[in-house]
Amino acid sequence: MSDAINELRAEVPLPQEGFEVVYQRPHSLNDTQFTYCPGCQHGQVHLCIAEAIDELEIKDRMIGMAPVGCSVFAYWFFDFDFISCPHGRAPAVATGIKRADPEAIVLSYQGDGDLASIGAAEIVHAANRGEQITVVFINNAIYGMTGGQMAPTSLEGMVTSTSPRGRDVSIAGKPIHVVEMLSTLSGVAYAERTTAHDPKGLIKTKKAIKKAFEYQMEGLGFTIVEVLCGCAINTRRTPKDSAAWVGEEMNKVFQVGVFKDIKEEG
C-alpha cells in the first residue's frame, strides 16, 4: 500500500527458528491494507470470503464482481480476477461471466443500495434463473460511500442524511427483506442471513459463505448470504456502539438464520 506501511512492515522481525506460523493472511487476499473506515465490517467479511476460498482451494477459479458502493475497490484486496460493475448490475454481469465460463466460481459482492435498490430487478431475475453464482450482500442499512443517505434497508424511524426526521414508512415504505423475498424463488439453492458485528456472527458468516460456494461448485443454483454490518461513520456512532446497534436494533428487524437450503428440503 503506502511506503510508510511497508517501512513499518520491514521493522517487524521475521519468524525465527523454533517459531511456526499459526495464523496468516489468506492467500486469496493480497498484502494491501484495507481502506475501510473504523467500525466497518467489510474487511472482516472480505476475510471470511478469502478464508472460505482458501479452504475450498478455488482461488484460481474465482472471478469477483465489485459493486458501486464502499466496496467498489474490493479488487484492491482480493488476489483473483475482478470486474467492477455498474451500480446494481453485478448479478447481470455475473450471469454473463458464469455462462461464458462455467468453470469459474463467481462472487458478486454487493451492498444494500446496489443490490436492494437500483439493482433490485437484476438480483431477483438472477436468483429466479438459478444463476450458479454466490452473492455476498452487505446490509448496513445505509448508503455509505455517498455519505449516509437512506437505504431500502434503513430501519423505521432511522435518521439518515435523506431522512432527517427518521424514515417515515408512510413515505418510504418499510425496510426490504431481501433473503426472505429471494428464498421464495425456485432458482435459489441457499439463502442465509448472518451478522458480522461480533466474533460468533463472523464464524457463522464464514461458514455460510463457504457453504454457498460449495453449493455453487455442486451446481445447485443461486446462493446468497446477507450479512448485517454497521456503518459507524454515517450513523455517527463509535465502532463499539455501531456493532452493538447491529446486534440489537438491526437484528430485531432482520432475523438471522437460514431461509432456504435446498439440501435441507431434500
Binding site: 470486474i83 460493475c85 448490475r89 450471469t95 454473463g96 455462462r99 465460463d101 430487478a121
Partner: peptide, 13 residues
C-alpha cells in the same frame, strides 16, 4: 439494462 451488463460479463470472459 440487464442484457448489456450480461454482454459486459461475457465480453470480459
Amino acid at each position: 439494462v440487464a442484457s448489456i451488463n450480461m454482454v459486459m460479463g461475457a465480453a470480459a470472459a
